[in-house]
Design a protein around this nucleic acid. Sequence first.
DNA 1: CAAAAAATGATGTACGTACCTCATTTTTCT
DNA 2: AGAAAAATGAGGTACGTACATCATTTTTTG
Lengths: 341, 341
Amino acid sequence: MIVPTTKDLAEAAGVSLATVDRVLNDRPNVSQKTRNKVQAAIEQIGFVRNLAAVNLLRNKPYKFRFILPKRGDLYLKELIQQVEHANKSLRSDMTFADVEQLDMGDPHLVANYIMSIDPSDLDGLAIMAPESPPVRDAISRLNERGVHIVQFLSAQENLEQLDFVGVNNYAAGATAAKIVGKFSGAKSGSIMVISETMLSSDSIERRHGFDAVINARFENLRPLPSLETYGEVSRAKRIIGNQLEHCDDIVGVYIMSSEARIPIEVMREKLNLSDVTVVVHERTPFSETALKNDQIDAIIAQNPGHAVRSALRILRARSEAREPNSAQESIRIEILLDENL
Amino acid sequence: MIVPTTKDLAEAAGVSLATVDRVLNDRPNVSQKTRNKVQAAIEQIGFVRNLAAVNLLRNKPYKFRFILPKRGDLYLKELIQQVEHANKSLRSDMTFADVEQLDMGDPHLVANYIMSIDPSDLDGLAIMAPESPPVRDAISRLNERGVHIVQFLSAQENLEQLDFVGVNNYAAGATAAKIVGKFSGAKSGSIMVISETMLSSDSIERRHGFDAVINARFENLRPLPSLETYGEVSRAKRIIGNQLEHCDDIVGVYIMSSEARIPIEVMREKLNLSDVTVVVHERTPFSETALKNDQIDAIIAQNPGHAVRSALRILRARSEAREPNSAQESIRIEILLDENL
DNA sequence: CAAAAAATGATGTACGTACCTCATTTTTCT
DNA sequence: AGAAAAATGAGGTACGTACATCATTTTTTG
């Protein structure tokens, strides 16, 4: 099989290589007639730029950075590992990725960091940060200064023009609700809803989706107010214990944040977890074990490897002024059971 | 940022470019001492081959073919579309893919086709064909003649040394069982199991996985013998109608083959599908609509786009004598509900 | 210690494209 | 018609690697 080159294209179009180059790279001083001739020849012989040659010529290292929270859970650890792995396996492709962990409790610190970035140092940024106006503004500014941005797993409002990698959290909550509802069978009772914090838009959206489905389809179930652990074991013990005392008809538990460990460990002291339906988010070594041990029933997950690779593909595409292949880049809401782990 | 080249490597190792080349490409006439020096320098400066340059130099078009069944359903159509799409978007990468559809009813025809392939025409083959000795032998032979092979979505026995793309069908059946069981709540009754044919190993494995989980965890449910439609509407009507008459305690339906349309259309005339739990395989325009209309409860799916791209990545890697990135290539058993479509 | 063998160096070519400069032809304008 | 402007052609360089060839040095062997 012969793959046509620019040379073949020039011949087919009846013009010189220089003119082909002018057309392909949108340079001035080409008549419309010639442009058409070349375009026709492109279609006719099926010419496609050889990516390897283009990349070799560009030969620019692409540097991308993930901004992730400092305080984190097992899922965060997975993400970091995936970035490191991607960094290794993409080096031969001139793609480099690293991680900067910031204290997300302080939006101004995050905004300052973003604004301090030198666009000549970095080609793109994947940001996972709680919704906040200063951060949003900093992102916009940096983007205007030529750094490509992907909103990673958590989106800022009013930044719809930027690429987003992650799941629809409303749908994720709704999916969790469907599982909790269906798995509870004909039982009636209350559903505990536990979150690390309800300040993030992720949690809010998940809660909305969850309530919508429970209310619409499972009249027998009563979702309780969200409990916020703030990631502290002692607090978790207190508030969860408190609720368990006042409520003796728990039939299901939904843990909205990516860290399922603390709530599960607290609860399994006071409750037989195999008797109630437990749904958590994100696959981690802990949640995987819990699923196998029948302490939880389902994991709603977004694959961290997919997410990282997808963000990098999008950043790479943007850096080369290509359109990302959107079909390939959507992240699925995965439902993991013991059977399909 | 500077990315080290072979030139930098030569300098760092204190040898000439020619020697670096000898080490990198495993050529003879290099002392062990020098090999070590170069290896050490590779580690030290973090040298990685520039893929673009290697590909440019190779500059070989890779030609791959998917062998798929001739008679097929909507899922097959999706697969074909995905191959066509991949073919377009990978042209700039010198990767070409096409589809050959064969009558899978005749193993010898399939085997003959495989044996008639000229290894100089084709770099790799992705085969989806029912388990059969002549086909298996033909695959082995072709592989020995230098054509890389991927077993696509359905595996041949005793060909474990070849790459496989697809899900574990036992686990897929088990997953379906878990959904049917849990979604049926406390109800007792029978489960219909419908397949196009029970001759394929896919169906057999799914059935095994299904029965294992139902028997182990759901004593209230009784799986019925498999009904085989052979893809014929009239036959489907007859056997399904027959079973519905003799069995008035149906609480769930499991459709094992990728074509859900015929059984669903037959059944919805005689049964209120929203009263029973229905689980099918593969996302197609039909099953998607049925899920939205509450005629089915869940789809067990393997993403056709992922599958096709994965097969092509593996074939490409093998053709370039690289190891495929196995972590990225595993196909998930997806559970699709109305909420996470 | 000389001859053979092994190891290493020096140098050139090629892959397909982008970008550059300069020469030449064609078109447009006055 | 003649000058200015636009269009096109011709040719070179560079990216990083693989694969040659041939010259030179070092090591091994009898």
